[in-house]
Each structure stands twice: as C-alpha cells, then as structure tokens.
Amino acid sequence: MTVTQAPQVLPAPVSPRRNFWRGVARVLRRKPSRMAGVAIVGLFAFLGVAGPLLYPNPLPRDDNALYAAPSWAHPFGTDFEGTDVLALVVTGTRYVLLAGLATAVITVALGTTIGLLAGFHRGRWDTVLMRLTDLQLTIPGLPLLLVLSTVWKFTSPIEMGVVLGVLGWGGIARAVRSQTLSLRERGFIEAARGLGLPTRHIIGRELLPSMAPYIAMNMLIAVTGAIYAQVGLFFLGVLPFDANNWGVMLNLAVFGGGALTSAAALPYLLAPLLAILLLTLGIVLVVDAMDEIFNPRLREE
C-alpha cells in the first residue's frame, strides 16, 4: 500500500505592506466618517492640482451681477466684481494647500530633527537645542509676521510656508524630545547601542520609525494650523492682494461688502469659511483614522 502524501498547500505569503493596506481599509470602513475625511482631503487635493484648470483664466466677471445672490449659475453668489465665488474658492485652493504643506513639512522636519538630536544625545546638545526651542517658542508669531509683512511680500505660497514653518517647529521639537528620552531607555535601543551601531542608524532606523505615526499626525495638524495662520494674515490685510485667496475673500466680504451687517455679501463670506471648515474637518477625520492605524492598542479594541 502506497500512501500517497498529498502535497501540503501553504497559504500564499502575504506581504506586510499588503497587510498594512488591508488594515487601513478595515479602519476606514469601521467609521463612515473616516471615509468622508479621506474623500474630503482627496477632493481638496484634486482641487489644489486641477482646480485652476477647471475655469478660464482670468475668471469671468459680470458688471450686472455684483454681489449676486446664490443661484444655479453661482451657487455661492458673486463677489464685488461679479466673479463666481465658488470659482474663486476652487482656484484659491492651490495656494492654501501649498502653503499649508510647505509649513507642515518644515515644521515637522525641523521639529523632529531638533527633538531627536536633543533627546538622544542629551547633555550639551540637549541644553543648547532646547534653549533654542524655548527661544523659538517665546517669539510671538503673529506680531512678528505683521512686522515681517511690511518688508516681505510673501508672493509665493512656499515663502509663506517657510516663514510659518520656521516660526512653528518649537512645539513638535519639545514633544519629539520627550518621546525620544523615553524610547532611548528601551531594550531595543540599548541592544542597538550594545551592538555598536552608529548613531545615524539608531536615530534613523530605530527611533524614527517608532515615532513616525506621531510625526505624521502632527504634520497633518500642522497643515490645519498653517491654514488658519495664513488665512488669518490675509484676512488682516497685511499680505499681498489676490482675489481668490480665501483670507482676502474673507477680508473683502467683511470690510468691503459688509457681510456681517447685510445679507448681500454673506455667501461671499460663507464660501471660504465653509472651505476652511471642510478641509479642517477632513484632516481631523483622517488623523482619527491614522491614530487607530498606528496605535496597536486602539486597533485591538
């Protein structure tokens, strides 16, 4: 009797990357609001990239429809020149997002680097870098920006992002330093040091991945902070005039159109406000999903 042994069928190997994306999909499906968040952020990203292509340049104006009421043709009415307000919001998305992203990248890059170096090396490094951080934290951002705006015109969103980023990295640096101080005492870091691995490897390959989720979430939150800051500056009228900038729109609606006093310019005020609200909401919902994706304890729950 010959026993024929059936060949053992092994399950197809699943790559960790594929597992990760499955987990992401599962986390997103668990709460519809997270799907909505991704959709909103996706929509704004699309508008940022393709928004200006959707409308003619320059945007059409209608002298007979200044501050026109909402209609099918103009869902959010028109502005003081008779330009469609929705078109202004859509074409203005690129500046806001670019400035927000530039701010977030610089904030996170500076904050993370300084926090990691200070926390890992401790001693003199820590003292110098943290005093530098304290100094940065004590600089009043808004008044400084108001003064800077008198000499610097911030015509490109990257310039805006650089300045906001340079003024906003202190909080992240402090938080990353705290995390680093905690992690550096853990066994895996001890082991890495015991193996004589170089500092660059320990920081780049051991510490940084452990903090990546935290940093990524901070980056998204920094985008919302940057949006508020830049829109606020434009609203105060201290930055260059650009009719489709959301902050400029708010400024003109309130001070030029009297939107807080009469209903005529109200849609002109509400459109950029809604855009800011929606974008912030989208980012917050995505951050909620990221929290669960990166936090094993939450995932188990």
């Binding site: 320059p58 104006r61 020149e81 009228g237 005039f241 003109l252 001070f255 030029g256």
Partner: peptide, 22 residues
C-alpha cells in the same frame, strides 16, 4: 499699490487690473 484698509481703493485697484489684463 493701495493701503489694505481702504476697501474701496482695493476694489477699484482690482477692477483696474482686471480691465488691464483683459
């Protein structure tokens, strides 16, 4: 150039630039 606080000047300047761009 216009001062940002003069809303009618800002609107006028914008209208002029729109016309010139046309």
């Amino acid at each position: 150039h216009v001062p940002a606080s003069f809303s009618d000047w800002v609107a006028a300047a914008k209208a002029i630039t729109s016309q010139l761009n046309d």
